[in-house]
Design a protein around this nucleic acid. Sequence first.
DNA 1: CGAAAACTTGATTAGCATCAAACCAGGTGG
DNA 2: CCACCTGGTTTGATGCTAATCAAGTTTTCG
Lengths: 251, 251
Amino acid sequence: MAQLARIYPLHSTLEGFTPYHPQAQVCLACGVRQFALFGVLDEEALQSIHLRIADLTLQPGDHLYDGEEPGGAVYTLRSGVIRLERSSEAGERRILRLAGRTDLIGLESLLGQTYASDAVACTPVQACRIPRALIEELWADHPELARDLMKRWQRALDDAEEWLTELARGSARHRMLRLLLKLSEFSDPAGGVWLPTRQEMGAMLDLTFETASRVLSALRRDGVVEVLDSRSASLSMPHLLAALNEEGRGR
Amino acid sequence: MAQLARIYPLHSTLEGFTPYHPQAQVCLACGVRQFALFGVLDEEALQSIHLRIADLTLQPGDHLYDGEEPGGAVYTLRSGVIRLERSSEAGERRILRLAGRTDLIGLESLLGQTYASDAVACTPVQACRIPRALIEELWADHPELARDLMKRWQRALDDAEEWLTELARGSARHRMLRLLLKLSEFSDPAGGVWLPTRQEMGAMLDLTFETASRVLSALRRDGVVEVLDSRSASLSMPHLLAALNEEGRGR
DNA sequence: CGAAAACTTGATTAGCATCAAACCAGGTGG
DNA sequence: CCACCTGGTTTGATGCTAATCAAGTTTTCG
């Protein structure tokens, strides 16, 4: 069985021989598993949980969950980009950070809390829904899962703090350059990066969409970005890094 | 023994009778223990750890730890205010959030990571240093400690995100009002709040110190704050909340 | 093909940074 | 005790950056 797993039962051609439930096959073959939460689990353990993990597909604009909602699950992202956003008390939307492939979001639900922000798809997204109860059970059997979860929390905290120091300060140009650098982390293998709408850029950088547009146009003229189609671009990393370096003062 | 603990051995007058080590007495009598990490431990368990917890006193400007430093301990704050700050890649200092009484900081050290930011005293501070190794041992015996730690992480994340949505956007006046609201969380029983230097305010709100000074002066004229001495003030909460409400647009 | 949404660009204005000067409190040394 | 210095603070004058208001253009989608 374990051997079969290693050769990917998804592609097995033995008729009538289906040792694994379809979702288990997906989990076993999943490209993010080694980075994801269940790296600590072996195939056998996976067998027992696959039934309870749902595979989700979202279109841009779809909400994975909303803030204040009683959180029942965490989500692993298998592809695409999710934005985590909040409304300020004054009613303005602000994007707090981005999550991509291998990220685990909605951790706060594990503590019995409501979600702390809205999670909205920016691109087509594939995600796995992992119910809180399942995590609790796994945790009981595999205490080392706790440390894994803590690392996730720390990563989220690091991201938030980096966002605060690098994307929420300095001139509009500086912020946009840092945003492009951040977006390059989410680039697909082909090299193209997802390009947010100008509205989204504004909500990330605390700029108006007009300013975002102007600054981006300037960077295009400087050869830092090339806009491919309206939702993707290619970056010139040398130009980008050079532009970031030659800023005497950030503001 | 347990009974003695309940009546606070610190004040015991029985000569020559010292069932507890001095630091254990401090821990037992500690006003923040019920809110702090060791709420889950009973007096007996406390007995075994007191020797390894150090009591620290810091003056304003002293560093509890520094970013990039190999983290060997977490710290519980018993009084005073600590600022967590980072330098951006461009070299500018930015204050990320504040920590006060009952807060636990330096969690990242538990994961074997270096500290993610500098922790600097803003006021006189009393803190307890809890070595990483001690937490690891306690964790082995009291697995429920893990959930406690996760709650701490989530609190830190919430704080960071609140800071991003409420203090890192909107007009200078709006930011200052939100900062005063935040500072009121750290007010002492007498009702006075700690007043940061204008430099510090600037580093928190991403403003120059001149702008911070101007805005604060305006709020003083509006009756929102009264500056007592250079490092403390008293707030008029009604004025403060009114000022926050009557902002048509945040920016 | 037409309407709506997203984007770009221009003109003007508001708000904050910058540069500069004066003020004040606390501390030091004569 | 006072003269002096230093670091934090306040306030003023000016300029730059990004917000605002306003067209006009391109893209998307029914």
